[in-house]
Amino acid sequence: MRPQQNPMVLVNADLLVQLMKRTGDGREVSVRDLADAAGCHPSKIGHLRSGERRTATHDEALAIAKRLGVDLLVLWEHTGRTVEAPAEPQHMFAVPA
């Protein structure tokens, strides 16, 4: 079983639309092409573009950013914990005399 990932949140739907018009290599990318790159259904990309949806898995977000030619955190922000919570310190116990 694959470990559950915290979803990534799209920072700005308009920025996604703009970056799709002119990717890192200077060419436009279609909804279908971006969905293929991300491994998701084209309707998910459509919903992200329109603002109806704001989240994607980490793998999808990374693939979208890579296809558009930008760093992950240009378009996405993390949710939840990104690192493990620190372990609680061991408490000292009083020793009876």
Rank of each mutant, 00 (worst) to 15 (best):
A94F: 14
I64E: 00
G80M: 08
A97D: 13
T82D: 01
R32F: 09
K44D: 03
L68K: 05
L16N: 09
G69T: 04
E60R: 08
A85Q: 14
D59S: 11
L73C: 11
A94M: 13
T82L: 12
G46L: 03
S30H: 13
I45G: 04
L16G: 03
H58T: 12
A65G: 09
R27I: 08
G80Y: 10
E88Q: 15
K21Q: 05
P3M: 00
E84G: 14
L10T: 02
R49D: 01
F93W: 14
L75D: 00
T23G: 03
P96M: 04
A87W: 12
R2Q: 05
M1F: 11
P42S: 02
S43T: 12
G26E: 15
L19H: 08
P89D: 08
A97I: 15
M20Y: 10
P3Q: 11
V83N: 03
D14W: 05
A56I: 00
P89V: 08
H58A: 13
V9N: 01
L19S: 03
G51K: 05
L15Y: 06
P86G: 09
E88G: 10
A85T: 14
H41N: 06
G24V: 02
D33W: 02
M20W: 06
L73W: 12
K44M: 13
T79E: 03
L72S: 02
R54D: 01
E60Q: 15
K44P: 06
T57S: 14
T57A: 12
V11I: 12
P42V: 00
I64N: 07
E28H: 10
V95Y: 09
E28N: 11
L75V: 05
N12F: 07
K44S: 06
G26W: 11
S43W: 07
R32M: 11
A38E: 02
A35F: 08
V9M: 03
E88T: 14
L19E: 08
L19D: 07
P7K: 04
A38F: 01
R67A: 08
K66M: 01
F93Q: 14
E84L: 13
M1H: 15
T23E: 05
K21V: 07
A35G: 10
L15S: 08
L34T: 14
K44W: 02
M92H: 12
P89E: 00
V29C: 05
G24C: 06
V83G: 08
R27S: 02
P89R: 03
M8G: 10
S50Y: 00
V95G: 10
M92P: 09
D59G: 09
Q18A: 13
E52C: 14
P96K: 02
W76K: 03
A63E: 01
L68Q: 05
Q18P: 04
D33K: 09
A13E: 06
P42Q: 06
A13C: 10
G39Y: 05
P7I: 12
A97F: 15
G46R: 08
T57G: 07
